[in-house]
Design a protein around this nucleic acid. Structure first.
Lengths: 186, 186
DNA sequence: GTCTATAAGCAGATAGAC
DNA sequence: GTCTATCTGCTTATAGAC
């Protein structure tokens, strides 16, 4: 077999941009074909079950990217305020400065909601747990830490929506920059 | 011509639930037909330009409903804290306890993003202005009032996403209940 | 105002050559 | 691993009867 023209991860990243712009139902194989430069039949070589497989690959890629590019680069020796600041900077890049939606948002609409409900719900809860743990390390009580963790995710998801709906990405950037102080206030 | 079996507003409300569940691209005429009990050709009687017309009617209906059921019932003689509490209770009903997405969210994805960009952006900015005005009446400075107005909308939109993605509507309800105190704190 | 019937095109998916 | 060619079904939309 001839060598692949691009790595599978490179293909998935291009799929990701399409799904996060058009949603699952709005994403067609034609759009995916155009974005990757591969014809439909070639996409089926990588993803035998078709569109559903491609969406799943995007979800898994985003989960991995989140760990690798948002969480792991945080130096645990820094004080918690600095750790949150680095995390928020990483999130700005992870979400492409607000240019694309969150995969958890788009895959909880329409047909994909039924297909991926369990895995998306799991990711939300895991993220809440992660932030809760960090906030407890910062000295907050269990109850307050959990409230603030949820609030942080609510704000990140909401900022993406408001930025996209208004056409002004600054709403996303500003929200993320304000977050570290808000998480730790009082 | 025979009498309509249901009012146009009743039809639009049923369309609304479909669009807010499936997004614009994920909404098919078959789904809309099923939800309203009208065959496709009958929908074209109400909305000559088809799906695009139906989505526009939903946007206009939501704008009107927001004014009529969220804003207008607020008694301006109450103190601002009570006014915000009533507004948030009204919002919980307006968003069907978090069961459906916000129209501004779904219509800023996929094809509909291009179709309705201008009108959706206008609605976001109008909402920011409205809340800014209310917060200034509550004694906040112009700058702080605007920041909190944006933050409130970010939280409302984010809470809808988190509730839907996690499958737990309580995240939406809790966020809305916490909002009045957060808007006015310090 | 609501319906049946139908058209043209695009959707997701597959077979098989190279 | 990538392609051309093709299938079936569903999509949006329209014509016209009642």
């Amino acid at each position: 077999m001839p060598a692949a023209l691009q790595s599978k991860e490179a293909v998935i990243k291009q799929l990701s941009a399409v799904f996060r712009t058009h949603g699952y139902d709005g994403t067609t194989l034609s759009l995916l074909s155009e974005a990757t430069g591969l014809v439909k039949a070639s996409l089926y070589h990588y993803f035998p079950k078709g569109k559903q497989d491609m969406a799943l690959a995007v979800i898994q890629n985003r989960t991995e990217l989140f760990k690798r590019e948002v969480i792991e680069p945080i130096d645990p020796d820094l004080d918690m305020r600095q750790q949150f600041e680095i995390m928020c900077d990483n999130l700005i890049h992870y979400y492409d400065h607000g240019r694309f939606a969150c995969s958890m948002e788009v895959f909880s609409l329409g047909q994909s909601r039924i297909l991926f409900q369990a895995i998306i719900a799991e990711r939300v809860e895991a993220w809440i747990e992660l932030l809760t743990t960090m906030l407890k390390k910062a000295g907050l009580t269990e109850t307050l830490a959990r409230q603030r963790a949820i609030d942080a995710i609510v704000r990140i998801e909401g900022a993406l929506v408001v930025a996209r709906a208004s056409g002004n990405e600054q709403y996303f950037i500003d929200t993320l920059h304000a977050l570290p102080a808000q998480l730790l206030e009082q």
